[in-house]
Amino acid sequence: MPLIATRSLTKTYPGGVTALSDLTLAVEPGIIGLVGANGAGKSTMIKTLLGLLAPTTGEVQVLGLDPTKAPEQVRARVGYMPEHDCLPPDMIAAEFVTHMARMSGLPRTVARERASEALRHVGLYEERYRQIGGYSTGMKQRVKLAQALVHDPDLLLLDEPTNGLDPAGRDAMLALIQRIGTEFGISVVVCSHLLGEIERICDSLIAIEGGRLLRADRIDAMTTGTDVLAIEVAEGTEQLSAALAERGLRATAEGRMLLVPLDDEATYDLILRTVADLDLPLHRLDQRRHRVAELFSTEAPTVQEATHV
């Protein structure tokens, strides 16, 4: 059963703005990045998954349930961390998280225990008995995460969890999310407009732009087969290309370079042997690493020096 599945999901706001357009996807449990520019429809997507917004057309399933038909059942098993400030400054963090745990249906004593636990897991210890108003942005973000986590959901929906944090705070938050996804065994959907930030903690990615799906796939599927080797020789480029073709490597010319898909480590040896056999002066043999970001942009891939040469 997929964690989240949508079919032709479309949401048009009364003003005529289409926030989601014909979105069809299915993602498996794990840490899922939901990326897109501001206004791409990420928050609309999250609210639709929570059953807070009804889709205009199309279907949506979360944890095997339809949030439009059984919103309470879905919300009982989902934790939500909004993008904006949402905490009452005059309440004590432990009290507030306990209250939110009870709102999710946890009995009073359990709510109190789990509130303390959740706050400890996000890294708030003695501070949890202070009023939220006196907290730093980073601490507030942690309380927001704790209230989403307190009822032990099966799925966490985090809307821009690194918003407003400094670089160290961002790293800490991302590490925490990764821990929740791996150690705690809770699936997480992380919204962000910064792909580079979340791609390293995600198992799969959903990329949307203008409400349309760009791509939804596992990270390894996105990066597999996209690495290429760039070969540059001083002379005899065509000769090399033909020789490589004979040995079963498909080389494409790009400028003065030849690009060969990197299937496995043996490709290096094969190329080096070919070059040696032809006795050509080799200038460079680089691995070009595709980052996921490049799948969504038209920019040329960045070249990184390979250490194999």
Binding site: L50, E72, R75, P82, C86, P88, S104
Partner: peptide, 14 residues
């Protein structure tokens, strides 16, 4: 004022 409503409405109440 505190925008706490989304936290309530994302829980199992109407």
């Amino acid at each position: 004022r505190n925008q706490t409503l989304p936290l309530y409405f994302s829980r199992p109440i109407k």
